[in-house]
Amino acid sequence: MRIGVTIFPGSNCDRDALYAVERMGAEPVELWHADADLKGVDAVIVPGGFSYGDYLRPGAIARFANVMGPLEDFAKSGGPVLGVCNGFQVLTEAHLLPGALLRNTGMRFVCDRVRVRVEATDTPWTAGCEVGEELTLPVAHNEGNYFADDATLAQLEDEGRVVLRYLENPNGSANDIAGVCSEERNVVGIMPHPERVSDPALGSDEGLRILRSVLVGAGV
C-alpha cells in the first residue's frame, strides 16, 4: 500500500508521518503542496504543523493549495484521508469535515500526552482498534477546541461519527471530541499525533493502532 503525506510550507510533522508510514509497513509518498495529482496513492495523511504560518486561521490558506484539488476529489470518491492536528484544521476548512477548531479555552498551547477512547471502529483509520479501547497519544496544539453547532454535534453523536474522545479534556473541546469522521466515514480528523508514537524508541508505538488500521481496512 502506498500512503501519501502532504507537505505544505510550515508543515512540521511530515517527516514523522513519512517515517510512521514506513513503520506501518507501507510505502511513504511525499505529496508536495504544488503537486497537481496524488501520484496514485491508496491513502493520504495530512500532517500536523503550522501550514502557511497559521495565517488568517489555521488551515485556511493550505485549503487552497494545488494538491488540495485532487485530494478533495480523492476524499469524495471514498479514498481514506487522515488529518492530524493542523491536518484536521485543514480538512475542516476544506469542508471535508464538519465544525471548526477554536483556540484552546485555557489560552495556552497544550503539549502533553492525553488518554483517548476509540469510539468508532467503522472508519479506515480505526478499523484495527476495539470500540472502547484506550490509547495514550501526544497532543501539541493551540487551536484544538472542537466546535460545531448544536444540531451538527447531535448529528455527529447520532451517527456515531465521534471517532476519538478525550478521557480528560485538554482544550475545552465540545463533548470531549478528539476526532471525527465524515458522513461517508472515509475522512477522519484527529487532534492527537499517532505518528509521534510509532516506534518504541519514541517511548511508545501505540499510534500504530490508528495508522495500521488503514491496512486492516484494505485487507493487507
Partner: peptide, 9 residues
C-alpha cells in the same frame, strides 16, 4: 455565543 478566549483573557 462562540467562545472567545482572547476576549475573555
Amino acid at each position: 455565543g462562540i467562545l472567545d478566549p482572547q476576549g475573555e483573557a
